Amino acid sequence: MPRQSISFSKPNDEWLKAQIDSEEYSSKSELVNDLIRQARKQQVHIDWLRVKLENSERSGFTNDSKEEILKQSKSLLDG
């Protein structure tokens, strides 16, 4: 696995240490990797919404009901 050296602001470093101290994570590396995985997953959702919005803007209207749109959004978030 590639190694990186990064610097954290004091508040961020203290937050990372608190997560380790609470035994939620075993190391800063594990925590940072998990945060990156979460951000990547969130980006997939953002990209999906962006495409939906762009398609909606081009079409003018959708035939999907509010309930259908909400169901699709929740389904994507549940992954």
Rank of each mutant, 00 (worst) to 15 (best):
M1H: 01
M1K: 00
M1P: 00
P2N: 11
R3C: 05
Q4R: 14
Q4Y: 12
S5W: 14
S5V: 15
S5M: 15
I6T: 08
I6P: 06
I6G: 04
I6R: 02
S7K: 03
S7Q: 06
F8A: 03
F8V: 10
S9N: 06
K10V: 15
P11S: 00
D13W: 14
D13N: 13
D13H: 11
D13P: 00
E14A: 12
E14R: 12
W15D: 06
L16P: 00
K17G: 07
A18M: 09
A18G: 09
I20R: 01
I20T: 01
I20E: 01
D21E: 11
S22K: 02
E24M: 15
E24K: 15
S26L: 08
S27T: 01
K28Y: 10
K28T: 09
K28Q: 13
K28W: 03
S29D: 02
E30G: 01
E30C: 03
L31C: 01
L31F: 01
V32T: 01
V32C: 02
N33V: 09
N33T: 08
D34T: 15
D34F: 09
D34A: 15
L35Q: 10
L35E: 10
L35N: 04
L35K: 07
L35T: 02
I36P: 02
I36G: 02
I36D: 02
R37P: 07
R37N: 09
Q38M: 07
A39D: 06
A39K: 08
R40Y: 14
R40A: 14
R40H: 08
K41C: 12
K41E: 12
Q43N: 05
V44P: 01
H45Q: 11
H45T: 11
I46Y: 01
I46F: 02
D47Y: 15
D47F: 15
L49T: 06
L49I: 08
R50W: 10
V51I: 13
V51Y: 04
K52F: 07
L53S: 07
L53V: 07
L53P: 01
E54Y: 08
N55C: 14
N55L: 12
E57S: 09
E57W: 12
S59Q: 06
S59M: 07
S59N: 08
S59L: 14
S59H: 10
S59D: 06
G60Q: 00
G60I: 00
G60A: 00
N63A: 09
D64S: 14
S65F: 00
K66S: 12
K66E: 13
K66T: 11
K66H: 10
E67H: 04
E68Q: 09
E68L: 11
I69E: 04
I69S: 03
I69C: 05
L70I: 10
Q72G: 05
Q72L: 06
Q72V: 09
Q72P: 04
S73T: 05
K74G: 06
K74Q: 12
S75Y: 04
S75W: 09
L76Y: 03
L76P: 01
L76E: 04
L76K: 05
L77E: 02
L77K: 10
D78T: 05
G79F: 07
G79C: 05
